[in-house]
C-alpha cells in the first residue's frame, strides 16, 4: 500500500500556494482522527452501516491528498457495507484501513512546511 501523499492536485489548483496546502493538511490532522474514532466506535458496535458511511466520508479527502490506493480501500469497504450489511469481514478490513490511516499522519506532518 502506497501511503505517500501526492499533492499534485492541490499544487495545481493553488499554483503552489503553500499556506493553502498547509491549511488543508492541518484540516486532515484535525478531522481524520475524529472520523477514525467514529469508525472505531462503529467497529466495536459492529455497526456496518456506520462503518460504510465513515469510509464513504474519507474518500474525497484521500483522493484530494493523492492517497489513491487508500481511497480504493475505503471504496471497497463502503461497497461491501452497502451490498452485504451483515458481512463481518468488513470489520478486519476496516481495522486494516484504520492502521493505514495511522501511518499516513507522519507523512502528512512531513509535508507541512
Amino acid at each position: 500500500m502506497n501511503l505517500t501523499l501526492d499533492l499534485t492536485f492541490l499544487k495545481e489548483i493553488s499554483d503552489g500556494d503553500q499556506d493553502f496546502i498547509n491549511d488543508v493538511l492541518h484540516t486532515f490532522l484535525d478531522e481524520m482522527p475524529k472520523d477514525m474514532a467514529q469508525m472505531n466506535q462503529a467497529i466495536m458496535d459492529k455497526d456496518i452501516v456506520m462503518i460504510g458511511r465513515m469510509a464513504h466520508k474519507t474518500k474525497s479527502t484521500l483522493q484530494t491528498l493523492g492517497l489513491f490506493e487508500l481511497k480504493e480501500l475505503a471504496l471497497k469497504i463502503e461497497q461491501l457495507a452497502k451490498q452485504t450489511p451483515s458481512d463481518t469481514n468488513i470489520i478486519p478490513l476496516s481495522q486494516k484501513f484504520m492502521g493505514h490511516i495511522d501511518r499516513v499522519y507522519p507523512n502528512v506532518k512531513e509535508s507541512l512546511k
Binding site: D23, V24, T27, E31, K57, S60, T64
Partner: peptide, 14 residues
C-alpha cells in the same frame, strides 16, 4: 454542502 471539511475547503478555494 459537504461533510468532508477538507474537500469542502478545496472546493471553496477553487
Amino acid at each position: 454542502v459537504e461533510d468532508d471539511l477538507l474537500f469542502a475547503k478545496t472546493i471553496r478555494y477553487i
